[in-house]
């Protein structure tokens, strides 16, 4: 049973950042902007968030500083995403190009600034954010160890965002308008929706979530930030496509992938797998191979927003 608890707890560390960032990407693409810059935005969000923690850790107590850092990361993400939105909406730029530019800019900028401040590119921080056992909830049998022990505030934040995303997308006027702008912007414009504003909104939400996602990916898995999020932005993009641009399916995809990743990372701690004569590299391949196989048998129809990636042209049909 302990193994199961351990696996579930570990899965959260991998899945929640993927969930957050993929949901971010969903808002951008549902509005019609492909945001391949998720990776870069994650890096910059993690960079400012960790820099904030590392600077003020002595003065501000644990969970407060985590919440403040998440706000810093989200703000950074929004700022960066504005550059992408400006290129994609105002300048009608190729969204892949603009996103690639941000992905290239982010690690270089993070390393450069880190070196200017502290001569090395790594930014260390003390992980004092782990919640060993949530008061009250953590002592519930079964559910306690599964969801309320060895956890982080960010996990619950992730689920909160999931619910909010679902409601916002399918139950509000904003969501309906956003989806219209991603499917058929000219039709949306014809009924008085400001397509540019909606696309800006979608991209900025994606920036905020990707920024936070970068931070909450680094915190449980590392003790320093070294200008990389190990390709998780691209994986989130994959989770988004795997999840067919829908919050509930994205949840499924993120957890499928996170669980596979956990097995790959922790197989040596699982008694049954330890005995199998399979080398570590093969386990590491499993998450990606499994995703490929699932996709090959499930994705005959694509739920991609029809106008995603196409600059909005008022005169178009």
């Amino acid at each position: 049973m302990n193994t199961v608890y351990f696996l579930v707890q570990q899965t959260m560390f991998f899945s929640v950042p993927l969930l957050l960032v993929a949901l971010g990407g969903m808002f951008a693409e549902r509005g019609g902007i492909i945001n391949i810059a998720l990776e870069g935005i994650m890096i910059l969000g993690a960079f400012t968030g960790i820099l904030f923690i590392s600077t003020f850790q002595a003065q501000i107590p644990g969970q407060t500083i985590l919440l403040l850092a998440m706000i810093v990361s989200a703000a950074t993400g929004v700022l960066v995403s504005l550059a992408h939105a400006y290129a994609s909406v105002n300048m009608k730029a190729n969204q892949i190009i603009s996103g690639t530019a941000i992905n290239m800019f982010a690690p270089a900028f993070a390393i450069y600034v880190a070196r200017m401040i502290g001569t090395v590119q790594q930014i260390p921080f003390v992980n004092e954010f782990r919640i060993a056992q949530a008061p009250g909830l953590g002592s519930i049998p079964l559910i306690g160890p599964l969801f309320f022990q060895n956890t982080y505030l960010s996990t619950y934040f992730g689920f909160l965002i999931l619910i909010l995303s679902h409601v916002a997308l399918y139950r509000t006027r904003f969501g309906l308008r956003l989806r219209a702008c991603g499917e058929h912007p000219q039709a949306a414009a014809s009924v008085g929706i400001d397509v540019r504003k909606m696309r800006y909104a979608g991209t900025m939400i994606s920036g905020a979530l990707a920024g936070v996602g970068g931070l909450v990916f680094i915190i449980p898995t590392s003790t320093q930030f070294s200008a990389t999020v190990s390709g998780y932005g691209f994986l989130a993009l994959a989770v988004l496509i795997f999840g067919q641009w829908d919050p509930r399916r994205i949840l499924g995809a993120a957890f499928f992938f996170g669980f596979m990743k956990t097995i790959a990372a922790a197989y040596s701690g699982i008694p049954f797998m330890q005995t199998l004569p399979i080398p570590g590299s093969i386990y590491k391949m499993i998450p990606y191979l499994a995703t490929l196989i699932v996709l090959a048998f499930s994705s005959k129809q694509s739920g991609a927003p029809k106008a995603a990636g196409i600059p909005y042209d008022q005169g178009g049909r």
């Binding site: 993009l237 994959a238 093969i282 998450p287 995703t291 694509s302």
Partner: peptide
């Protein structure tokens, strides 16, 4: 996968990057 199973090539390419890296390491 793109041609016959209609899987978006971006996602498969990303997966194949990691499979390639781990396979080559092995």
């Amino acid at each position: 996968l793109k041609a016959y199973r209609n899987v978006n090539e971006v996602i498969t390419c990303i997966m194949m990057n990691y499979v390639g890296m781990h396979l080559v390491n092995y």
